[in-house]
Design a protein around this nucleic acid. Structure first.
Lengths: 301, 301
DNA sequence: GCTGAGGCTAAGATATTCTTGTGCTCATGG
DNA sequence: CCATGAGCACAAGAATATCTTAGCCTCAGC
């Protein structure tokens, strides 16, 4: 008749630790101290009477038991989490005003939005794309997605995703010819530039890339410039040259074959995409539901 | 990056309540008071901002939200519970000495035992089938399965399953003829009797059945008698007559078509099958693992 | 119209869980 | 080769969360 379950919070602590590979990281996800996670995991190990981690001086390694255990736990918690999110979202109702870069909206948000509509059919999204930093005091904004080193002063922020960059071009640019496979060889093709880029964020500009590789930057300024990433990408798709593709902005074009990666080079940006707003906004149900959904989307491979 | 989960203990309280249809029943399963369950469910409803139950004067009814929610939660908790049980069982090691009625072992336990071997490959079962009540003080017994109204004096017990009874016979007994469909019509066939039955437990004897139906019991004592349910069933399978089939004892024969139910009559026994032993035994890992497994098996449809 | 089952609430008791602060180990880098 | 810092363990007290108890309410069934 009965069902016997292990201590659930200990289980959650283990699942997070195993998934993230560290008590410190798990503690951040669970918003408790690392010591708390350590204690919870110990409790579970006692309950099971078997070690789940090998404690190394620097970090953790799963034991065989732990390795077998993790995937099923994750699946179980996913079920709990997803079904809960659905229940929560179904009756929420209202408008969510969101700003983000057009290119991010286009590359990341729009292709996923049908799933949000499914989950929260009664929340309407009002999307404001703008290159300016919006002011929460002035504008009637619920939430912003920002690319920045930190969430922003005075604002609460949750990390949405990181960004990997790599050279991309239309396959038509090369006709049948061999595609260049080194950074140096790219200089033979027209390079497309983002106007803003390259000062603070060297990974956004060709100059940064050539300097990092120790190559001459003499001719690196040549080529057309674009003030907006979305237009820049459009130019690359049209075969006008090679652009520095920002992962989240170009993923759908890569998936459709409109763009391909050129060379194996890549650069992982130290900045992050943040979901950000004054802390109070995050307590609005409509915002919370969107944020939870977005974070979940970002966790998918 | 992050995953957001609802309060897990509240979730478990809801799952149990919804599955069992009552806070009182859920409280028994979770081994807390009904008030605690009520509070936990309320907490979850607040978290979700939606009602999950309609509170009726006498009992509960799921709302639409709750109805959608339950199956996924159950699936999630099943994953957690089953994978945990596997991890727990894998290293346990030893012998479990168990007594039970031969017919119950044959009809219920043996067909399921391959799954137990899978889960706990290093636990060997020593099965002692006996019609006598075993004495935990005298015999080296870990656990007994007993059919009784209560677990037994001085012993801890967990309810394994109930028992439904119904007339059964080999389909060959009727040749091509019409199968009797009323209790009264059974009297035309040989009735098979369990020697012990019919005094304390009227549902085990034909006399009890005929009395309950208000029929004459004049000829009800006729027919062969058997001192052991397993032999009685064998006789029924061999086409010797109609027996009172005890659900857990005859399930595999029904599944294989060796027996069929005769008439739609059935009687739900007020006694239960108990897993029972001195409380201390239940704390032995080997016992706990078997008990958890058996309870889980009993929950399956 | 009783009675009992089942649920609710409030308040205080009890447990669990978390944080803080300290100490340890070892990989990394100067 | 030593200093540094990341990451984990441990202990004790603090902060919560959770449970129980006890009394009340409603309605179904007798």
């Amino acid at each position: 008749m009965a069902r016997r379950l292990p201590p659930l919070n200990a289980l959650r602590a283990f699942e997070a630790s195993a998934r993230l590979g560290s008590f410190v990281a798990a503690a951040a996800e669970l918003r408790v101290s690392a010591a708390a996670v350590s204690q919870q995991v110990r409790r579970l190990e006692q309950y099971l009477d078997t070690p789940l981690f090998q404690r190394l001086a620097r970090g953790l390694a799963l034991t065989e038991q732990g390795r077998d255990y993790l995937p099923e736990l994750s699946a179980g918690f996913n079920l709990l989490g997803e079904s809960t999110a659905r229940v929560r979202a179904k009756r929420a109702d209202g408008v969510l005003t969101l700003t983000t870069l057009a290119a991010f909206a286009n590359g990341w948000l729009l292709p996923r939005l049908h799933r949000f509509r499914e989950r929260a059919p009664r929340i309407d999204l009002a999307l404001r794309t703008s290159r300016e930093i919006m002011d929460f005091r002035r504008d009637a904004l619920d939430l912003a997605i920002r690319f920045a080193p930190t969430p922003g002063r005075g604002l609460h922020g949750e990390e949405l995703c990181s960004e990997e960059l790599f050279p991309v071009a239309s396959p038509q640019l090369f006709g049948g010819r061999h595609m260049p496979d080194t950074l140096a060889a790219l200089a033979d093709y027209p390079l497309l530039h983002d106007t803003d880029a390259g000062n603070e964020q060297p990974w956004l500009g060709w100059r940064g890339w050539f300097e990092r590789a120790g190559l001459s930057t003499a001719n690196v300024g040549r080529g057309p410039q674009f003030s907006d990433s979305i237009v820049l990408i459009g130019a690359a798709v049209a075969g006008l040259g090679i652009a520095i593709g920002r992962g989240p902005h170009v993923a759908p074009m890569l998936a459709r074959g409109q763009l391909v990666r050129v060379t194996q080079e890549s650069w992982k940006s130290p900045w992050r995409y943040w979901l950000t707003a004054p802390a109070a906004h995050f307590r609005r149900p409509v915002v919370r539901i969107f944020v939870d959904w977005a974070l979940e989307e970002a966790r998918q491979p």
